[in-house]
Simulated scan of single mutants.
Amino acid sequence: MDSSGRVELPAAFEDADIDNIALLIADMLERLIAHNDRIPLLPESLTRFHSRAAPSISVLDYLRRIVRFAKVEKICLLLTLHYVDQICARMPLFTLSSLTCHRFIIASIAVSSKGFCDVFCTNSHYARVGGISLAELNVLEREFLHAIEWRLTCTCEVLQEYYINLVRTHSTGNFVIVDAHSSSSISSDSDVDSGASRPASPMVVETQTSHRQTSTILIDTATLSPQASQGPTIEQNMAFAALQQSLEKAPRQRGNQ
């Protein structure tokens, strides 16, 4: 970081510091959550990823905790964004919100680490790091794999596109990618593309203006097979009623303190 607060990043995500990648991802997810939390919660939109209350730990601190105690690789952090887009497209009613983000992240990290890393942790370790029980993580892992249709692979070109997009859209405008082989740079207030060729199929999707639409990040529409919309199950209705009851109790409990 220079005196102006600008943070220079390498052109390739593989060369970036993992904490800077966590910062970029957390900024994107926090803005996504802020948008999606305004979408009315419907019983049919409940999933295994929904918590009764939003965790008190921030997305950034949660990512840093996972990186520190689970030795997560950079590719797994960026894959979380790819999985967000893929699952949101296949499950139109699912939203990454303050109630789903943390459980989604730990499930994504556990799955991607097993799929792409030579060394990974046990589910019991991921569960302790993520602050959930082993039984919960096992259920989340199965739900995650079903939702993603076991399509865990992603090209480095697409992950690089996520990296570039994270820098372009960062809320502070302090991050900039400097090409070591030229004077060009990419920053959050710049429209200049990187020297490398960009994949043709993915496109950047800006935050939707309608609160009825979920917001995605970068999506390859050619690979998607959205699930048909279904009505809420009895289990979802019961879980929705319990969640609504717990949310209504929380303000009253705070008022009595």
Results as ranks from 00 to 15, higher is better:
residue 141 E to Y: 15
residue 61 D to N: 15
residue 122 T to V: 04
residue 60 L to E: 11
residue 120 F to D: 01
residue 135 A to K: 00
residue 55 P to C: 15
residue 83 Y to G: 02
residue 54 A to P: 09
residue 70 A to S: 14
residue 133 S to E: 02
residue 92 P to E: 14
residue 141 E to I: 09
residue 60 L to Y: 15
residue 106 I to P: 01
residue 112 S to R: 00
residue 144 F to G: 10
residue 51 S to C: 09
residue 105 I to H: 11
residue 52 R to Q: 15
residue 46 L to M: 09
residue 77 L to P: 02
residue 138 N to A: 05
residue 60 L to P: 10
residue 70 A to K: 06
residue 95 T to K: 15
residue 56 S to F: 13
residue 106 I to N: 07
residue 92 P to F: 01
residue 145 L to I: 10
residue 98 S to Y: 06
residue 137 L to I: 01
residue 78 L to K: 03
residue 73 E to H: 10
residue 140 L to W: 08
residue 91 M to F: 03
residue 122 T to W: 02
residue 146 H to E: 15
residue 107 A to H: 09
residue 71 K to A: 07
residue 70 A to E: 13
residue 117 C to W: 01
residue 130 G to N: 08
residue 98 S to K: 10
residue 56 S to N: 10
residue 143 E to D: 12
residue 102 H to G: 03
residue 76 C to D: 13
residue 51 S to A: 09
residue 108 S to K: 07
residue 64 R to H: 14
residue 102 H to A: 05
residue 51 S to M: 12
residue 135 A to W: 01
residue 88 C to P: 00
residue 123 N to K: 12
residue 67 V to F: 03
residue 106 I to W: 07
residue 121 C to Q: 06
residue 95 T to R: 15
residue 113 S to N: 08
residue 47 T to L: 09
residue 80 T to L: 09
residue 146 H to S: 11
residue 130 G to C: 10
residue 62 Y to R: 13
residue 100 T to G: 10
residue 126 Y to N: 01
residue 92 P to Y: 02
residue 107 A to Q: 12
residue 104 F to V: 13
residue 118 D to E: 00
residue 126 Y to E: 04
residue 96 L to E: 00
residue 126 Y to P: 01
residue 134 L to N: 04
residue 55 P to T: 15
residue 103 R to Y: 07
residue 98 S to E: 06
residue 48 R to T: 15
residue 104 F to Q: 10
residue 113 S to T: 14
residue 116 F to M: 04
residue 123 N to T: 07
residue 117 C to M: 02
residue 77 L to F: 15
residue 136 E to L: 03
residue 65 R to I: 05
residue 114 K to D: 00
residue 49 F to L: 12
residue 102 H to W: 08
residue 89 A to F: 07
residue 63 L to D: 05
residue 75 I to Q: 00
residue 67 V to Q: 13
residue 115 G to K: 10
residue 110 A to E: 11
residue 107 A to R: 11
residue 124 S to T: 03
residue 66 I to W: 00
residue 122 T to H: 05
residue 112 S to D: 09
residue 100 T to Q: 07
